[in-house]
């Protein structure tokens, strides 16, 4: 009981801090604006496709989400342990009866609450506007809901990874650099490297067997494949996303991958914080 109250105190404080320093507002705005921009600018739905606006935007937004959500998740969490070491509050906190595992899990919950609120409100507003302007069908609403739910799961993975990185160095500056590095590698470079390999391989063994597994192993790609595979659409999808309809695994395996990443991230963060001498 005490442990739960301690965790509630930690999570509530993290959330309150994010509210006070405008993080909640800022991230909600970012998600709203990007989702709306995607829906109404550039290659927005036209003519006969209008009824499918939600579905189509969900498909394109899933690609943007792969960049945006991990970035926001890392930004909200990179400071959480290293920052407390730097400011001296970790020594204070760890002198109280709170356990390190409780601290990690509670901070994770606090950060994830911030991110969930931002995603739900941001994408919610955008979805509402699209539905009002273009109309909506059940399939579109389902696709949108799935997008929001899996975006939160993707966010959870990267909040956990951000906390893991935050438990490594003693300075927030280093933690920030590592978070940006992790984002670049996992979200940008990983896909580029795989695409490069596929081009070099020219349809060989790598492309047929290892490549799909490697794509699915990446949390961002797993998220995107899951959403695209479940969207009934004949809109052309290119690059890695072509895999969405030819994946040699059941679609749900993407969720398993995300869950594994989440678990590994939290376990890693916990293991690392146990070694910290505040």
């Amino acid at each position: 009981m005490n442990g739960l109250d301690r965790m509630a105190a930690v999570a509530a404080t993290e959330f309150r801090l994010a509210l006070r320093n405008r993080w909640v507002l800022l991230s909600t705005l970012v998600f709203t604006l990007f989702a709306l921009a995607l829906a109404f600018l550039g290659s927005g739905p036209s003519g006969a496709l209008k009824a499918d606006a939600l579905t189509l935007t969900a498909a394109s937004l899933s690609t943007l989400t792969v960049y945006l959500v991990p970035l926001m998740a890392l930004l909200v969490s990179y400071d959480s342990i290293a920052g407390e070491i730097e400011r001296g509050t970790l020594a204070l906190v760890l002198a109280t009866p709170v356990k390190r595992g409780e601290l990690v899990l509670a901070k994770f919950c606090g950060h994830l609450a911030v991110l969930t609120l931002a995603i739900a409100v941001g994408y919610g507003i955008a979805g509402l506007v699209i539905a009002v302007v273009h109309g909506a069908n059940p399939a579109g609403l389902v696709a949108w809901g799935r997008l929001v739910a899996t975006a939160v799961l993707l966010g959870a993975v990267f909040v956990a990874l951000g906390m893991l990185l935050s438990s490594l160095p003693r300075q927030t500056g280093t933690a920030a650099a590592m978070a940006i590095g992790a984002w670049l590698v996992l979200v940008v470079l990983y896909d580029l490297a795989l695409l490069g390999a596929v081009i070099v391989d020219q349809g060989g063994v790598f492309t047929k067997t290892i490549f799909p597994a490697l794509v699915l192993a990446n949390p961002g790609d797993a998220f995107r494949l899951y959403n695209l595979a479940l969207i009934e659409s004949n809109a052309p999808i290119a690059g890695l996303d072509g895999l969405a309809h030819t994946l040699p695994f059941p679609v749900s395996s993407a969720l398993v991958v995300l869950a594994l990443w989440l678990f590994a991230g939290l376990a890693g963060a916990w293991a690392l914080t146990r070694r910290i001498r505040p």
């Binding site: 309150r16 801090l17 320093n21 400011r87 001296g88 509050t89 020594a91 204070l92 002198a95």
Partner: peptide
């Protein structure tokens, strides 16, 4: 031991926004 002890570190910066 943790329940018995209270600590004030040499340098501590409480969250400014609280």
């Amino acid at each position: 031991a943790r329940r018995a002890v209270s600590y004030l570190p040499e340098q501590v910066v409480f969250p400014k926004a609280l």
